[in-house]
């Protein structure tokens, strides 16, 4: 039990620290790496809750696929460091006031007493043959089937929207016009000038 607590606090601290670094680090590549650390730390927290499927999904999908893509984009964009930093300093006082207000309200509102009994013990451990994946799958396709389908619709919208926004015919592009090329004939292209206007 004590080991579990230790793991929880260490990785929570890591999560908070790396998340903070994501927003304050100067280089965007470094920020992306800190985001990966944050994902890994939260995967460990999922593990502690015995939600091994979600933990692995976070690492496979986010760290493995999404962040890799993200790194490519960050490296290709070549962001202007100075400009980012300048804005960060300029908006800092305002941001500090807003954050202080929000934290104040939340600490005032969400005191431990308001959350009911926080010292709820961890649920009993599941049996060895308990499959987190199977339970999740059952829930997704029965109880939450409607919400699950809607999430799929959102992905479809993303596809249609991104194609609509990126696949566009430029009006000034230099592409060959195949139809015009095939329709061209000798009479259109070739003008025979008999009188060259050159007399001896």
């Amino acid at each position: 039990m004590i080991i579990q607590k230790l793991v929880f606090y260490v990785f929570s601290a890591l999560l908070i620290g790396s998340s903070t670094m994501v927003i304050v680090s100067r280089q965007s590549v470094r920020a992306a790496f800190f985001l990966i650390v944050a994902f890994c730390a939260s995967a460990v927290l999922w593990m502690l809750l015995e939600a091994e499927f979600l933990a692995l999904l976070l690492i496979f999908v986010y760290v493995g696929a999404v962040m890799t893509l993200f790194m490519f984009v960050v490296m290709m964009l070549n962001l202007d460091k100075e400009a980012v930093q300048e804005k960060f300093v300029r908006y800092l006082p305002f941001a500090v006031v807003v954050v202080a207000l929000m934290v104040g309200v939340l600490v005032f509102a969400v005191k431990p007493g308001h959350l009911g009994d926080l010292s709820v013990a961890m649920k009993a451990h599941h049996a060895a043959d308990y499959s987190n994946t199977k339970v999740l799958g059952m829930l997704l396709y029965t109880r939450y089937v409607y919400a699950f389908e809607l999430a799929a619709v959102i992905l479809l919208i993303a596809i249609v929207a991104s194609i609509g926004l990126t696949h566009r015919e430029k009006s000034n592009n230099k592409r060959q016009r195949v139809v015009a090329q095939l329709e061209a004939n000798k009479a259109d292209r070739l003008v025979v000038i008999t009188d060259m206007g050159v007399n001896e």
């Binding site: 809607l150 959102i154 993303a158 991104s162």
Partner: peptide, 13 residues
């Protein structure tokens, strides 16, 4: 929430 996102994402695009 899902309904809200399904209806507002197309608007942005």
């Amino acid at each position: 929430y899902l309904g809200l996102e399904v209806f507002s994402l197309p608007l942005y695009a």
